[in-house]
Design a protein around this nucleic acid. Structure first.
Length: 781
DNA sequence: ATAGGGTTAG
């Protein structure tokens, strides 16, 4: 602030008036003394001792332009940049005229600080001194305006230059490149070549290549490669720089073969070269190779090649492969090499632990970090969301705001799914509002997260609104919207949207078909689903993955074609994994096919059951058939093998706060009211013909007690709480972490009649819209 | 010239 005020005190007129007539060196403080000081000043600056240099400077009674310039230049090199600007101000104050060796350096300091106001003032001073079209001054001005994203101003300076060298051309090109202005950059490059004698140099290429990489412009990149070969770069340093930029361009275009070839052909490589190649393999999801390259690098260059960048890539490999042993080793390597304090390295480590589910470890690391930024908070936040601790994620978000760390696109994209997990519409709407306030509401990835959130919070209509209002949809937008229709059992809408997508020229990808087929499955559209599977393999040329087979088995089996599903599994080219068999087992329960269920469960046991769902499923199948001994046996095996079933939990959002219940829960402050209401509901629904489906209760209890065990299931508690707290016109919306139980499903249908309510239950799989005694899932879920 | 947190599926 102080500095700006002082700058404005001096008009451009003052500058020109006191400009030294010749620019020649003249010492006002009587020769010898001044000469000695100047020599000392130069010496200290050469040794990088800026403190001492400044002391010598202060001892000069009347420093001249040369003394000022020397110190300004030194400060503009590595900072502190404001010291350079302060010196410039003092220069004006003491009526020493800045010259063509002053302006470029003080402008460089402004550029480093992105101080546009200061820079503009200096621009005026330079113009008054008639130096604004000087080659070096102009180039410095271009740098400044680019840094402040003032492209027109930069181009104006460029246009006014009487003569330009490659550096000037490169300065403007760098601006276009850094801001992803592909068309401007290419046009500028063509102008440069048309202008005559100037040829792109190494610096031009190193500026241009990252832009091509970012745009995925492989063919243009290849032309640049060809030019590089013709242009023959003789300096080693240039070869490494250009070679690395080329390699990176190929890697970012996912052309690893060429990236590798460039790498192999390079006579000299540095740590950046290695990092770029490793990053390329990570980008292409070739994690094992990426890690072996990392080891090669260490074998080749030792620890001095270890940088925060390469460590970051290696840690991403560990996170992706869920290899904690390797990750921990890297952690200690990091500590030994002394780069543990680096922000990037720290964030990578934090993220690795968070993704691996070691959230406590991540939290500890986070607390220990001395410098934290948006990314650090984002890593922790998404760690909580990914590990199912959505409420903790909100706390991190609050903490972040309390610490004045501004949430950005990635932060919000991580936070919004936390609302989806909780199915907390109010939270979701708040996040939506927050996104609008921050001016992020037009971001594609944010809209995608919002579409998903509204769908999972039961408002598919709002999902569609967000989708329709988007400036430009990407493949994820379409997939998310199709999936949203799917979990609401709106298979027809999903299909229509899919066709619309193709009409707009979007090529469906592998995930699109997963969304589409599962949408068909949830709506019982078996024929359509089979049709889309064939379309995918024959027309779209997409190789089915295990996920597609899971969807198909689910589609066939849920639709009642159990034998066909079984046959389908046996004919599939991949070896079916537990999830495929699990899908079939789930359908055996719905269709009460015990024989097949037993066979399938044997397959699953051979494969080693993953998770816990399948044990519970099998045991429920036995119970449903009244074969309690066998059901109990399955539970015992489950216990012996050490699998725990996560407890069923349901929750409901009332006026923006969440109320969660587990089965038989009495911890809620209004517990007695809730239980009383439930008992009343039971009396009413029995009058309409409801019978408790006690076949699902395992314990050896009297019939009435079994009924009670069912009555206090978590979803029923949450609904009763909703009945008590919401007016009749409001839909009751309950979320459950597991699949809704069969008895509850039947009871809730009756509840809609006796309490005149619409009830929506979102379980682990899908939505159930209960209305007028019926459910949207058609009793298949 | 390289790099850290992010949305879709069952």
């Amino acid at each position: 602030m102080h500095r700006r005020v002082r700058l404005r005190l001096f008009s451009t007129a003052a500058v020109s008036r006191h400009r030294s007539p010749s620019g020649a060196i003249s010492y006002e403080d009587n020769s010898n003394n001044g000469l000695r000081h100047q020599q000392q000043l130069d010496q200290h600056i050469a040794r990088g001792q800026l403190g001492l240099a400044h002391k010598v400077f202060d001892a000069i009674s009347a420093p001249d332009a040369r003394a000022f310039n020397a110190l300004i230049r030194a400060y503009s090199w590595r900072g502190p940049f404001h010291a350079a600007i302060d010196l410039y101000c003092s220069m004006l104050h003491r009526r020493v005229a800045p010259n063509k060796y002053t302006f470029p350096f003080v402008l460089k300091a402004c550029s480093a600080l992105a101080d546009l106001r200061c820079g503009r003032a200096i621009h005026r001073h330079a113009a008054a001194a008639g130096l604004h079209t000087d080659l070096f001054v102009s180039t410095a001005l271009i740098d400044l305006y680019i840094r402040c994203a003032r492209f027109v101003a930069a181009a104006n300076v460029f246009a006014k230059m009487p003569a330009r060298d490659v550096v000037a051309w490169n300065a403007l090109l760098a601006g276009y490149a850094q801001h992803g202005m592909y068309d401007h950059a290419i046009a500028h490059l063509l102008d440069m070549q048309a202008d005559g004698h100037l040829r792109p140099n190494a610096s031009t290429l190193v500026t241009l290549l990252p832009l091509l990489a970012q745009q995925g412009a492989l063919s243009q990149g290849t032309s640049v490669h060809a030019y590089c070969i013709r242009a023959y770069l003789d300096q080693t340093e240039e070869q490494v720089l250009v070679g690395t930029a080329l390699l990176d361009m190929y890697a970012k275009c996912k052309h690893l073969v060429y990236a590798r070839r460039v790498f192999d052909g390079m006579p000299v490589r540095n740590e950046v070269t290695w990092s770029a190649l490793i990053g390329g393999f990570v980008l292409c999801n070739r994690m094992v190779e990426a890690f072996s390259l990392f080891k090669d690098m260490l074998a080749h260059g030792g620890l001095c090649f270890l940088s925060p960048t390469s460590i970051a890539s290696a840690l991403r490999v560990c996170a992706s492969l869920a290899d904690l042993r390797m990750g921990t080793q890297l952690h200690s390597m990091l500590a030994k090499s002394g780069i543990h304090a680096d922000l990037t390295a720290g964030n990578s480590l934090l993220s690795m632990y968070a993704k691996a589910g070691l959230i406590d470890e991540a939290e500890m690391l986070f607390d220990e970090m001395e410098v934290k930024d948006t990314v650090s908070y984002g890593a922790l936040l998404s760690g909580y969301v990914q590990n199912g601790k959505a409420d903790e994620a909100f706390l991190v978000f609050k903490k972040m705001q309390a610490c004045n760390v501004e949430p950005d696109v990635a932060t919000m994209v991580s936070l919004i799914p936390a609302c989806s997990h909780l199915a907390a519409l109010q939270h979701g709407r708040c996040s939506h509002g927050s996104v609008i306030v921050r001016g992020l509401a037009t971001e594609t990835s944010i809209c995608n997260a919002l579409i998903d959130m509204y769908a999972k919070c039961g408002r598919i209509d709002l999902s569609r609104q967000v989708f329709d209002k988007m400036l430009s949809q990407d493949i994820v937008s379409w997939n998310t919207m199709i999936a949203g229709y799917g979990i609401h059992g709106l298979g027809r809408e999903a299909t229509t949207l899919f066709l619309g997508m193709k009409n707009e020229g979007f090529a469906p990808d592998d995930v699109t078909f997963i969304c589409l087929i599962s949408a068909c499955s949830h709506s019982g559209l078996v024929t359509e689903g089979k049709h889309w599977f064939r379309t995918m393999t024959h027309k779209s040329g997409i190789q089915p993955r295990m996920e597609h087979y899971i969807c198909m088995v689910d589609l066939l089996a849920r639709g009642g074609f159990l034998d066909e599903a079984y046959e389908f599994i046996q004919n599939m080219p991949l070896k079916a994994d537990v999830r495929v068999w699990g899908a079939l087992l789930g359908a055996c329960r719905i269709h009460k096919n015990i024989d097949l269920g037993k066979r399938v469960s044997r397959m699953i046991q051979k494969l080693g059951p993953e998770g816990t769902g399948n044990f519970v499923l099998l045991s429920n199948i036995f119970s449903a058939a009244g074969r309690f001994d066998e059901a109990a046996e399955v539970r015992i095996i489950q216990k012996v093998k050490g699998f725990k079933k996560s407890p069923g939990c349901s929750w409901i959002e009332i006026n923006g706060s969440l109320h969660a219940f587990v089965g038989g829960d009495q911890s809620h402050p209004h517990s007695s009211d809730i239980y009383e209401e439930l008992d009343n509901i039971l009396i009413d629904i029995k009058k309409l013909g409801y019978q408790a489906d006690t076949s699902f209760v395992l314990q050896d209890l009297e019939e009435e007690e079994k009924e009670k065990a069912l009555l206090y299931h978590s979803e029923k508690l949450a609904i009763a709480f909703g009945v008590l707290n919401l007016s009749e016109d409001k839909t009751i919306f309950v979320t459950k972490n597991l699949r809704v139980c069969g008895d509850c499903h039947s009871a809730i249908k009756y509840m809609t009649l006796v309490r005149h309510r619409d009830i929506i239950v979102r379980d682990a799989n899908r939505f159930h819209h209960f209305k007028n005694g019926q459910c949207s899932c058609g009793d298949f879920w």
